[in-house]
């Protein structure tokens, strides 16, 4: 149901964009106003979200360590998994941001296919009460990590390749990226590896939610919406590059018009391009308000970016107010005569 509803939502967006690109009076709305507004919402929305996070107090450290913390000199400490220095935190963050370290630890719970043997102890040393039952086991689950890595890195490369449309003349390093990406020179225009990787990764990430009943149960409307939106975006781009040829020169004129604040919508830009442009605009505008904002959030995860110095250093809550205390010495002074009369020992005679 969720999957269907978000598919309908993305289809409506595609249809709207197609109409916007076909009706002459709407072309400037969908070609200029929508993308400009989307970029503005993206930048302002993301800045507002990050500012809100920055102003949220983090009174104590939640290091969620995956390694031995630093204690006695003869206990080997893990400086990346449980960092106590700034360098360790930086390395841990880099591993998280660039290689999705925590997703690499992903596990999957499943019941064993075969029941534990009824007689005797099994290989795992199962307790007698567990005999004849199936066992819950946790296995490594690396496919999600692999697909996520393939998707994010390909998306970055595709994004950088698109710089050829907004910079004139296109920078040499963008050409170099495109040359490496199209290294195999399959067909004309050459097939980009990242296009294939992107579609394969997105396909896996969608199927993963659709096929496994447990993940399907956990999947929300917005999980599917983001996936369909991205598939629509990448799909329209791939179709334009390899199948329905748009007028690339006219598209660059439109893009350059946007970055130089002299917007034009050339007549030869096909409605197909408007679908691509509108989907990317929706993605940008949707970004700050959705789970996609993890792009910024990953840098601010308290469990990743704080050093595990809970025991090494004394962390005083900066907004502690002075607490009125009544020490033992004061208490003894208060009841000195009574304590003495009862014959009880005193700290200060």
């Amino acid at each position: 149901m969720n999957a269907l509803l978000s598919l309908v939502a993305v289809s409506i967006l595609v249809a709207l964009a197609w109409v916007g690109g076909s009706v002459a009076s709407l072309r400037s709305v969908f070609g200029i106003v929508v993308p400009a507004a989307a970029v503005a919402i993206f930048v302002v929305g993301l800045a507002a979200r990050v500012t809100r996070w920055a102003l949220t107090p983090v009174p104590f450290r939640i290091p969620t360590t995956c390694g031995q913390q630093r204690t006695l000199p003869w206990i080997k400490a893990s400086w990346i998994e449980s960092p106590w220095t700034r360098a360790g935190v930086v390395v841990r963050m880099a591993l998280e941001v660039l290689l999705f370290r925590s997703l690499f630890r992903n596990t999957q719970a499943a019941m064993t296919a075969e029941p534990i043997p009824a007689a005797g102890q099994d290989a795992h040393g199962a307790a007698p009460a567990a005999r004849g039952l199936r066992r819950l086991v946790y296995g490594e689950e690396k496919w999600l990590w692999l697909a996520a890595l393939a998707f994010h890195w390909s998306f970055l490369v595709v994004l950088l390749r698109h710089l050829r449309f907004v910079v004139e003349p296109p920078p040499a390093w963008v050409d170099a990226i495109a040359a490496v990406d199209g290294f195999f020179q399959v067909g004309v225009p050459v097939l980009y590896m990242t296009d294939v990787l992107l579609l394969a990764a997105l396909g896996y990430l969608l199927l993963r939610r659709l096929v496994d009943a447990r993940i399907r149960y956990l999947s929300l409307l917005q999980d599917y919406f983001a996936l369909y939106l991205l598939i629509g975006l990448v799909g329209s781009g791939v179709l334009m590059r390899y199948f329905v040829r748009p007028d690339v020169v006219a598209i660059k004129e439109l893009a350059l018009g946007l970055v130089t604040f002299a917007p034009v919508v050339p007549a030869t830009v096909s409605p197909f391009f408007f679908v691509h442009l509108t989907l990317v605009s929706v993605l940008l505008a949707y970004f700050p308000f959705s789970k996609l904002v993890h792009m910024a959030g990953v840098f601010l995860s308290p469990t990743r970016n704080l050093a595990n110095t809970n025991r090494m250093r004394r962390h005083v809550n900066p907004w502690n107010y002075p607490v009125k205390v009544h020490t033992y010495e004061e208490w003894e002074d208060e009841f000195r005569d009574k304590i003495k009369a009862a014959g009880l020992p005193l700290e200060k005679a």
Binding site: A47, A262, P263
Partner: peptide
């Protein structure tokens, strides 16, 4: 982040790019 997102605009300003084919 803001500078990176708007980099093409600044570049266009600096290089004196003009729209057009």
């Amino acid at each position: 982040f803001f500078v990176l997102v708007t980099a093409p605009v600044w570049y266009a300003r600096a290089a004196g790019e003009k729209a057009g084919g």
